[in-house]
Design a protein around this nucleic acid. Structure first.
Lengths: 97, 97
DNA sequence: CGAGTATTAAACTAATTGCTAAAATAAATT
DNA sequence: AATTTATTTTAGCAATTAGTTTAATACTCG
């Protein structure tokens, strides 16, 4: 890897390396969810979820769609889905896909 | 992924998400290197390299072997090698293996 | 042993991060 | 229009992290 690529990948990993954000990404693997949906799973405040989503958005990992007064989030970067899948295979002994 | 697994994986990602540490891991993909060897590639101080190596050691990602007054570092966790390979494939368009 | 090299540890500063609470925005419902 | 629901933004604080410098340790070789 070139230095630029290393910096870019490190940034991506950094944005994924917070437990709440990693969990959000896992939850969004196969569906889209609103901030409130996520909050129910993650045990924190809406504001906090919103902030973490923002970090993932700024990194270009997720995108959203507005419907009524809900915002539905989904993963846009196919490579992230691939990476998460790989991590599940590697680090979760009981993972099957 | 279970919450425990998420926390564990997040910790691993965090330890890999610093540019210097990610570069160290790339350098160690197929060989072992001393602190001095690494410093030459990474453009920082020995003390700084040493600190980063320590973080990776504490995370159980790398191990070392002592010979004379050199310490040779290598990656011990096969899964990390796998993960790095996957990241190279995903994020480095020109990567072939 | 003593000089030189490699590595680690400690102390400190500066910068970043994570979280909470509160205020602001936006849309739906009454 | 006022209220409710959902989300975002802001400000502030505590905690963590990164990097520099300095000192200490470990080992080799002459």
């Amino acid at each position: 890897m070139k230095d630029e690529q290393i910096d870019a990948v490190a940034k991506i990993l950094k944005s994924m390396s917070h437990p709440i954000r990693l969990k959000i990404l896992c939850l969004l693997q196969d569906r889209e969810l609103s901030v409130g949906d996520i909050r129910k799973e993650v045990e924190t405040t809406n504001a906090n979820v919103s902030q973490h989503l923002n970090i993932l958005r700024n990194q270009g990992i997720i995108d959203y769609r507005k419907e009524a007064n809900f915002i539905y989030n989904r993963i846009t970067d196919k490579r992230i889905l691939d990476l998460i899948l790989n991590m599940q295979k590697l680090f979760c002994p009981d993972f099957e896909k």
